[in-house]
Amino acid sequence: PEEVRRLVEELYRKGVSPEQVKKILKKQGIDEREIEKVLRRIG
């Protein structure tokens, strides 16, 4: 979803590592598979 992409990109631009991005967003209840999809697209 758009909102997940925005959150991931925001953290990524701040220099947060992909592993940390995953941890942070998982705590917020976001599906890990969604996060990984976005990270793959960015990375």
Results as ranks from 00 to 15, higher is better:
Lys14Asp: 05
Gly43Cys: 15
Gln28Thr: 08
Gln28Trp: 12
Glu34Pro: 00
Gln20Ser: 10
Arg5Lys: 12
Pro1Thr: 12
Val16Glu: 06
Glu32Val: 06
Ile24Thr: 07
Lys23Asn: 12
Val21Gly: 00
Arg33Tyr: 06
Tyr12Gly: 02
Arg40Tyr: 07
Glu32Thr: 05
Arg13Ile: 05
Arg5Val: 13
Glu3Asn: 10
Ser17Gly: 10
Glu2Asn: 09
Arg5His: 11
Lys27His: 10
Gln20Lys: 09
Val38Asp: 01
Gly29Trp: 02
Ile42His: 06
Lys14Ile: 08
Gly15Glu: 02
Gly43Asn: 10
Arg5Glu: 14
Arg6Ser: 06
Lys23Pro: 03
Glu10Met: 14
Glu19Val: 08
Gly29Ala: 03
Val8Thr: 02
Arg13Tyr: 14
Lys27Val: 09
Arg13Leu: 07
Glu10Phe: 14
Val8Ser: 01
Gly15Trp: 03
Arg6His: 07
Gly43Ser: 14
Val16Pro: 00
Tyr12Ser: 05
Glu3Ser: 10
Pro18Glu: 11
Pro1Asp: 11
Leu11Cys: 02
Lys26Glu: 06
Pro1Val: 09
Glu34Trp: 05
Glu36Arg: 03
Arg33Leu: 12
Asp31Ala: 07
Arg40Thr: 08
Pro18Phe: 10
Arg13Asn: 07
Glu2Tyr: 09
Glu9Ile: 15
Leu11Thr: 01
Glu3Arg: 08
Gln20Gly: 10
Tyr12Asn: 03
Glu9Gly: 05
Lys37Asp: 15
Ile42Pro: 08
Arg13Thr: 07
Arg6Asn: 06
Glu34Asn: 04
Val21Asp: 00
Glu3Trp: 11
Glu2Trp: 11
Ile24Glu: 05
Ile30Gly: 01
Glu19Asp: 13
Leu25Ser: 00
Pro18Ala: 10
Arg41Pro: 09
Gly29His: 04
Pro1Leu: 13
Gln28Lys: 12
Arg13Lys: 09
Ile24Ala: 05
Lys37Gln: 09
Glu3Phe: 10
Arg41Phe: 15
Gly29Tyr: 02
Glu32Pro: 08
Glu3Ile: 11
Ile42Phe: 11
Glu36Trp: 04
Val16Phe: 14
Tyr12Val: 12
Lys37Arg: 13
Pro1Gln: 12
Val16Asp: 03
Pro18Asp: 08
Arg5Leu: 12
Lys26Thr: 13
Arg40Lys: 12
Glu2Lys: 09
Arg5Asn: 08
Glu36Phe: 02
Leu39Tyr: 02
Arg33Met: 08
Gln20Trp: 13
Gln20Asp: 13
Glu10Gln: 13
Arg41Val: 15
Lys22His: 08
Leu7Ile: 07
Glu3Leu: 12
Val4Thr: 07
Glu10Trp: 13
Ile30Glu: 02
Ile30Cys: 03
Gln28His: 07
Glu2His: 10
Lys37Cys: 06
Pro18Ile: 11
Leu25Met: 04
Arg33Gln: 12
Ile42Gly: 04
Arg5Asp: 09
Ser17Phe: 05
Gly29Asn: 05
Leu11Trp: 05
Tyr12Thr: 08
